[in-house]
Design a protein around this nucleic acid. Structure first.
Lengths: 154, 154
DNA sequence: TATTGTTATACTCTATAACTATA
DNA sequence: TATAGTTATAGAGTATAACAATA
């Protein structure tokens, strides 16, 4: 997506427009940074969920990531093909697949996190370090939105 | 998209994750706010481009918005069906369609901008007014990215 | 009867290729 | 031949419905 001329200030100051393009830009930088490791941003999300929790069922992984369990099937298929995750039946409930990172997967996660950090630094480069930190904090506040206003109003 | 438990800090601190969810949240708030006027956020983008420039061809509108001209066709079809824009052939080049807001379209834009402002205030509600302003400025800086570093470094 | 993983299917958004009518 | 608009088609990404195996 390139505008080459810009849509004008009526559009380019809208949060919807800004957030969409910020997300597109970040995705491009991230996918470029992850390409050497053969994964994209969505797949890194799955790997990070696996890295951050005890091994769980496909459905648990899907819920944590906020995607449908049917979406998770194809996602894990490709990650398994790449040798980054393993699936094996749960001992006490054979309906479930226990999903885990392989050794290769764990190594890839470590490298991918570094690559992702680099992409984030690139994304934030136009901001001062303090503004960059404030920006990330604001994003987290807004996304986490536990619905308390900043100073008692509303 | 709801996670209901969260993907864990390894994922939820990533800019890619935060920007995606911020964009989804903003889109939901915006579309809800625009629903009474029968348009969504994408369609508002088109209307705002038309409101901010002299009447132009479909292709100019598409370029300004950063979408393909084939995408613009269906977008304008629905907006024309809703009576918000009009198409008529250019006087000196009958290959072109001149696209303009109708009177209804102009009125809708004014109302939709107010609704969009309200959705943005809702989105930014968890931040202090100063933080909200900083957040929008940072977004604009990052998206506009004319590739100069903040203070000569890099 | 309910749940897990799977498959088939469909829907949205978007882009590429080919067609038409003009230039 | 080149361009503007259009149409048909295809590719992501995601979701819903139905099915098999298991509980």
């Amino acid at each position: 997506m390139s505008t080459s001329e810009g849509p004008g200030p009526l559009v380019s100051t809208r949060l919807g427009y800004l957030l969409k393009h910020a997300h597109v830009l970040m995705s491009e930088l991230l996918n470029k940074a992850l390409a050497p490791y053969g994964i994209d941003g969505r797949e890194l999300g799955v790997l990070l969920v696996l890295a951050g929790h005890e091994p769980g069922s496909q459905q648990q992984v899907a819920q944590r990531l906020g995607v449908d369990r049917t979406t998770m099937v194809a996602l894990l298929d490709t990650l398994e093909d790449k040798g980054l995750v393993s699936r094996h039946p749960h001992a006490n409930d054979r309906r479930r697949n226990v999903v885990e990172l392989t050794e290769t997967g764990k190594k890839t996660v470590r490298q991918a996190i570094e690559a992702s950090d680099k992409a984030e630094r690139e994304f934030l480069a136009p901001l001062s370090p303090q503004d960059a930190e404030r920006f990330r904090d604001a994003l987290q506040t807004v996304v986490t939105r536990r619905d308390q206003a900043p100073d008692g109003q509303r």
